[in-house]
Design a protein around this nucleic acid. Sequence first.
DNA 1: AAGTATTGTGACAGTAGTGTGACAGTTACG
DNA 2: CGTAACTGTCACACTACTGTCACAATACTT
Lengths: 228, 228
Amino acid sequence: MTANILLVEDEPAIQELLAFNVTQCGFRAIQARDVASATAEINRALPDLILLDWMLPDVPGVELARRLRADQRTRNIPIIMLTARTDERDKVMGLESGADDYITKPFSPRELMARIRAVLRRRMPQMSEETVRAEGLELSPTTHRVNANGSPLDLGPTEFRLLHFFMTHAERVYSRAQLLDQVWGDHVFVEERTVDVHIRRLRQAMEPSGMDRLVQTVRGSGYRFSTS
Amino acid sequence: MTANILLVEDEPAIQELLAFNVTQCGFRAIQARDVASATAEINRALPDLILLDWMLPDVPGVELARRLRADQRTRNIPIIMLTARTDERDKVMGLESGADDYITKPFSPRELMARIRAVLRRRMPQMSEETVRAEGLELSPTTHRVNANGSPLDLGPTEFRLLHFFMTHAERVYSRAQLLDQVWGDHVFVEERTVDVHIRRLRQAMEPSGMDRLVQTVRGSGYRFSTS
DNA sequence: AAGTATTGTGACAGTAGTGTGACAGTTACG
DNA sequence: CGTAACTGTCACACTACTGTCACAATACTT
């Protein structure tokens, strides 16, 4: 997964530091010194994530963020704001402009990387519109249908999203909180045990085809979707 | 969650101030005046966070940070650098050495505490998620699975954490008290002999693959995970 | 060799974590 | 509207795990 990351920053020293760290982590760094060249780069090829400085020579970074959010094509590109100001109001403005996260200068490279990864991880699942297949299961996001060994599965909306998430994130264990974040959304206020109930409903729907064994409980940790 | 914080600072006045603030916030303060004693403290028991002064009598703080980052066992311990210098180059150097954050003297106690909490919050949830391998053993925290020469091991939650700790802290002997701190958590009230029982359960699970020999008893001291 | 300290082991009750059925409130849709 | 589907929550059942003990086995001391 070599994501393209667009760095918009005018100070050469910081620009260089960013590029160094980003490439170090296996991402591809695309550099821009101002909003004008950033826009050009975006038009050339959509990046997977934008690291955007607050202060830029031509137009404020927030303004670019707003523009990107207004455009259908760039709406879903995650943005991390890079700002020197620390007072709360600026932070809120940065977020309300559509940034997914922000980080204040001076920043620690480790923290920056952690946030980049977190944002990318959060974004990735919703980009996949392709049909997912695994172990006789076939889930198609576009037609909203699931097949288990040829016979259709009847799932509710939540169970569908849950199964879709599991199939695109197989093997890994997810805690109830993580599943709530990923499947329900990271803002909702729902009991963690609700996850259990939907897991059960998913298993119940998968039981006739014998596929329910794929949804596994990891006691003390959460759940896992696995073919073994 | 009373985290252990190691304070490495030579000036007695600041050392005291740090210790006061840290304990005030419910953390346990471990004090060291130089790199030598800091290293000794780290070897005795791994702290959850290190507050590291830039200038120290024996070795520069950055050097200690680099060393800690190079060692497998201490790689994931968050470090906050404490520095009087404010010019940008020093900051970058401090961060590239692997510090998670830094704070310039003179600092406000509130800011210090905020950073400590932020770093801890960021660190705590993830216990080094990388797959650990040793001698035909393969433990993956993300999938929550253990393989011993290809065949899966069935471990309870505690045995899993115990093995994970051992594999990431191989060769070294740990007393029962230290194991309770590191694997159970430093707040729990549990008999020391309980460790013995879990060691036995771990060995029992590893026995079919012949891996139980890796968990060794050091009479009078504790246990050790070793490949020899 | 006996005596003492330390560790291994089996059993067991209590408990935390999970499965499950039922139900009321909500939304979707004809 | 009225009905059907879906959602979130609860109470209860059930299971696996935990911590502790008593006693056996072992290593060390004198």
